[in-house]
Write a protein that binds this DNA or RNA. Structure first.
Lengths: 77, 77
DNA sequence: AGCAATGTTATCATGTATGATAACCAACAA
DNA sequence: TTGTTGGTTATCATACATGATAACATTGCT
């Protein structure tokens, strides 16, 4: 259980969202729409350029039809 | 996979943190110290009176020595 | 060539999370 | 009584997430 820094944490989560989104064949636009926000904000999230709140991540998990814990199921975290 | 409202989401997460904290025999003070913040902020979090960022939740998971996905492993979410 | 789709960055206003301090309550021990 | 521990709430300043718009680059299609 090694602690990683904030930047790495955020990029890992962003990459995880991107992976799951692409697996479902959705564009950033599509996923953003399902979450009721703009594609620009999805781009920012996936790039790890923001520190999302749990409600934002929950909206994404719902749009991806997975559990919140699955969205954040990243080996290193 | 039913969508719940924000307030319920936050109280469920707060309760989850409290449960895990008490299971480890830690006071709010103890856990807050491990996370490098004040006990008042831990109280606020557990009460669901704030919408935590993922970095805050990550700090807590590290302090509790569990994975982030385990911290958020709540049936309904 | 134009055009639509996809994704990115910059920027802004507004709301709110965080970090901190102080005041308070309850339970309990000295 | 006094002091300690555990927890709560109110409040404040500062930083930043969110929601939104605009501008831009690519790619691929017609």
């Amino acid at each position: 259980m090694t602690t990683i820094n904030k930047e790495l944490l955020l990029t890992k989560i962003g990459s995880r969202i991107r992976l799951l989104r692409e697996t479902k064949g959705l564009s950033q636009q599509d996923l953003a729409a399902l979450c009721n926000f703009e594609k620009t904000n999805m781009s920012r999230l996936e790039a790890g350029r923001t520190n999302p709140t749990i409600t934002t991540l929950y909206k994404i998990s719902q749009a991806l039809e997975i559990k919140l814990s699955e969205l954040l199921n990243i080996d290193e975290l």
